[in-house]
Each structure stands twice: as C-alpha cells, then as structure tokens.
C-alpha cells in the first residue's frame, strides 16, 4: 500500500500527476518563469521531500499542487481530476476535500482555540456541529493534542501549534498532505516530534509532499525531488 507504483500497474490513479507544467509570473511587462516544464508523479501513500535552493520554484510548485494557483501550461491531474482549468470556486472545493496544508508559520487563527481551528475545514464542508466536534477531537487525538483542545495558539508551544495545524490539515481526510518547510520555525527537538508524526501518518497510508531545504529533514521522506531554476533536476530514489 505504501508504494503501489512498484508493480508498475495501478488501479487507482496517482495522487498527483503533473505533465510539462510551466508557471510564469507577470510583473508588469516582465515575465518571470518560475517553473519551466515540470513532470512529476506522486503515487498514493508516497512520502516525498522537495528540495532546492531559495528561489528555485519550490513554493510555486507547492502552490500549484495545493490548487492555490493555476498552471500556465501543461496538465495537472489530482486524484484523477483535471484541475488545470477549474474556476476559483471549484479550486476551493478541491482544496477543501483533497488538500491538507501545513505551513512553516503554522497559520492557526489567533483568536480561536485548537478545536475550533481544526473544526474550520469541516465547517466550510458543511458538516453539522456535533459531527464537527467529534471529528475534530479525533484528529487532535491523532496528533496527540486531545488535552489541548481548548487552548488558543498563544497558549501552545510551537510544536503543539504545528501539530494542531496538522490535525486541521487531516480532518477532511485529504488526498495529500502538503507541508512547506513544516519544521522551519521549530527547534530540533520539536522538529523531530513533528517528523515522527509525519512518519506515523505515512505508515498509516497518508500521502505527504514536504518542502524543505534541510537534508536531515528530507531524509525522513521516501523520495527526494530536487528543483533548480524551475526544473526538476534529479530524482533520487532512496528507500
């Protein structure tokens, strides 16, 4: 289950399938090619680290994978759905159901306790209040934060905040968990905790795509993808 692509034939479509994807930003009349033809497949259950120097296009790639932005050229099929040409509302729906975001800066809502933060995706999905609470508590339990449900972000440590954010990312049972430098704001001890959590999630079948510049962090992933100047330069299979 961890690596269904091993036998070469899969019944289920890959989680992520990018073909010749380009992304060009327009700064006035200036064209900034951030991605210049990226083809890249992530099978279900894979744990992938994306590495590369600053400005190489990692975040751009993550924004595209996360359906926060649209490709300029090429195709993108997410969980069997062609998302390259969806409108804003459809993209929001995809983000809601198929994507779980984990950010470097946690990005929890400040005035809102952990439970409410985790409830948010369920709320936008139209889940009734009682079920929201039940599912959110289950997600918090999954990241080991059930006893901090009613703490506000300011009352949580960095590691706890990130775990709450991971619970929020998981609560709608997304196709992929996207993490952009998830340990960037954490000390090495709490980084280990978060990475251990990722490993556990990976073992339980989650698909994870993580951006990092730290080789130590990347080593936890099953596969490392390197980005340089808007191109994938190397795919080192390592587990």
């Amino acid at each position: 289950m961890n690596n269904p692509s091993n036998n070469g034939v899969t019944r289920t479509p890959p989680a992520i399938d990018l073909r010749d994807v380009t992304k060009t930003y327009h700064l006035g009349s200036l064209e900034v090619p951030a991605l210049r033809g990226v083809s890249f497949t992530v099978e279900r259950g894979e744990y992938i680290a994306i590495m590369g120097p600053s400005g190489s296009g990692k975040s751009t790639l993550m924004n595209l994978i996360g359906c926060l932005d649209r490709v300029t050229g090429g195709t993108y099929v997410l969980d069997g759905i062609d998302v390259a040409n969806l409108d804003d509302n459809q993209l929001a729906e995809i983000r809601l159901r198929k994507i779980g975001f984990v950010f470097q800066g946690f990005n929890l809502l400040a005035r809102t306790d952990a439970l409410k933060n985790v409830c948010l995706p369920l709320f936008y999905a139209g889940v009734p209040a009682a079920e929201r609470r039940r599912k959110a508590l289950a997600a918090l339990a999954e990241v080991g934060l059930e006893d901090r449900a009613h703490h506000k972000p300011t009352e949580l440590s960095g590691g706890q905040q990130q775990r709450a954010a991971i619970a929020r990312a998981l609560v709608n049972d997304p196709t992929v968990l996207l993490a952009d430098e998830p340990t960037g704001n954490l000390d090495s001890k709490t980084s280990e905790d978060v990475l251990a959590l990722f490993a556990r999630l990976h073992e339980s079948g989650r698909t994870i795509v993580m951006v990092t510049h730290d080789a130590e962090v990347a080593r936890h992933a099953g596969r490392i993808v390197r980005v340089r100047d808007g191109l994938l330069v190397e795919e080192a299979l390592h587990a």
């Binding site: 804003d88 929001a92 995809i94 983000r95 990005n107 948010l120 995706p121 936008y124």
Partner: peptide, 16 residues
C-alpha cells in the same frame, strides 16, 4: 488579510 488567506487555503469559497 492573513486570516482570510488561511481560510481560503483551507477551502473556504468566495461566497463563504
């Protein structure tokens, strides 16, 4: 602004 960004990233629609 940031809060709105978070909500949209999570999957909030424009109408919401």
């Amino acid at each position: 602004t940031r809060e709105i960004g978070i909500r949209k990233a999570i999957g909030a629609k424009r109408s919401q």
